[in-house]
Amino acid sequence: MEPLTTVRVALIAVFTLLGLFFTFVSMTGVIRLPDVYSRAHTASQADTLGAGFALAAVALTVGLAGSGFKSVLLLFFIFVTNPTAAHAIARAAFEDGNVPWTEGDERR
C-alpha cells in the first residue's frame, strides 16, 4: 500500500468512528434529556457533527474525481438545514405551549 493510501484509509476509519461516536452522543441525548428544547439542542449539534464526520469519510472514499463533490455538497446542505429544522421544531414547541423544563420538574 502506498503511504498516501495508508493515510487516506486511516483517515476514513477515524472519521467514520468519530461520526459513529457523535451520533451515539446525539442518540443518548435524544433519549435521555428531559424536554424537547434540550433534545433539539443535541439534535442540532451533536448529530450535525456526527453526520459531518461520516460524510467526510464518504468523500474521502469516493474521491473528488468521482462523485465526492456530491458528498461535500451534502455536508454543506446538512450543516445549513439541520439546525434550521431544530429551530423550527423548538419554535413550534414554544408556540404550542411547551414550558421549558426546569430543575425539579419530572422528566418528559
Binding site: F77, V80, T81, T84, H87, A88, R91, E95, G97, V99
Partner: peptide, 30 residues
C-alpha cells in the same frame, strides 16, 4: 393560541403567529 400560558400578556397580544425569520432565510438560500 390565546392559551399559551408561558407567554406574558404583552407577548401574547397582537402576535398570533409570525413566520420564522430563520426558516425564511434558510429556505431562501436553499
Amino acid at each position: 393560541h390565546e392559551e399559551r400560558p408561558h407567554l406574558s400578556e404583552v407577548e401574547r397580544q397582537g402576535t398570533p403567529y409570525t413566520e420564522s425569520q430563520v426558516i425564511m432565510t434558510t429556505v431562501k438560500a436553499v
